[in-house]
Simulated assay, not measured.
Amino acid sequence: MFIDTHLHIIDKQALTYPWLADVAPLDRDFLYRQYAQEAKRVGIAAALHMEVDVAPEAIDAETDYIRGLSTEPDSLIVGAISSCRPEEAGFPAFLERRRADPFIKGFRRVLHVMPDELSETPLFRENVKRLDGSGLTFDLCVLPHQIPRATALVDLAADTQFVLDHCGVPAIAAGERHPWQENVAEIARRPNVVAKISGVVAYADAGTWTVETLSPYVEHVVDCFGWDRVVWGSDWPVCTLGGGLATWAAATHALFAGATRDERRKLFFENARKLWKLDLPA
């Protein structure tokens, strides 16, 4: 069974997503009901919703919308990773509101589409440091050349648990491994970072990738982080760009066919259950 640590729900009737206009294949509704049917078929037992970079004024509305989905009968959703804006002066008050909400398990500020310097501004760094001791995670979605900047954030907030999304976003379609390979190894030296095995099918050539295409990238991440510091995510519906949820689940099983049962359980389920303190059977 999987805990999906990276589910996106897109409902254009309910929320506003400015970036979708530039990504035509995703510029439509991807609703929970569609996800749940397929997720249950591939063995997903629970899911964390990952913020979808809604318009800033819709951040609270996104949380409320996802909370509503979590209350539906037999819902897979057990929590949410909220969007945030650490570059803004209002972040401390925002953080205090979120800390009081047990449904919120962590935060993400998308950085891979932002100027490299954003995470280096004094206010951004000061506000990320405020996460220390909060018990809330911070997801890092960065390009390979931005990983050193992410590493600097990690060093700044040593008591915050960070999550490196999508294996560090390697350029798989281009066959590039540098500087991604070295930068992943360096950030993995920090004990307060876990890596998310997710998203890689979207970074491969949709028409030609195979398990062998993905394997060197995924194996490098696991080798660097170890089995106790990796979690799994679907990245639905972005994974539809590379074949879809069922295809990614099948590829995952193939990629880790040589792992032990205990190693697979850690990656697929147990590490996420412990990291986000999810009330699920062990």
Rank of each mutant, 00 (worst) to 15 (best):
A195Q: 02
I9F: 08
G199Y: 01
V113K: 08
C167M: 07
D155C: 12
P92Q: 02
R33I: 10
F91M: 05
D228K: 07
E88C: 15
V163W: 01
N192G: 07
T260C: 12
E182N: 10
A14M: 14
V42K: 01
L69T: 07
L76I: 11
D165R: 03
F225M: 05
K129A: 12
A24N: 13
F2Y: 00
W276G: 03
N183H: 14
V194Y: 04
T247G: 09
F103G: 02
S83D: 11
W236M: 03
S198D: 12
V200G: 00
L278E: 00
C167D: 00
T121Y: 05
L164N: 08
G199C: 07
E96M: 14
K12Y: 09
G226F: 05
W236S: 03
V194A: 12
P191Q: 11
D279K: 13
E72M: 15
E270S: 15
E88D: 11
A173G: 07
A188C: 02
H145Q: 13
V200S: 02
H178V: 09
I187H: 04
L245I: 03
G168R: 10
A61Y: 06
L143D: 07
T260Q: 15
D279A: 15
D223H: 13
F225C: 06
L20R: 08
A157Q: 05
L280H: 06
E182S: 06
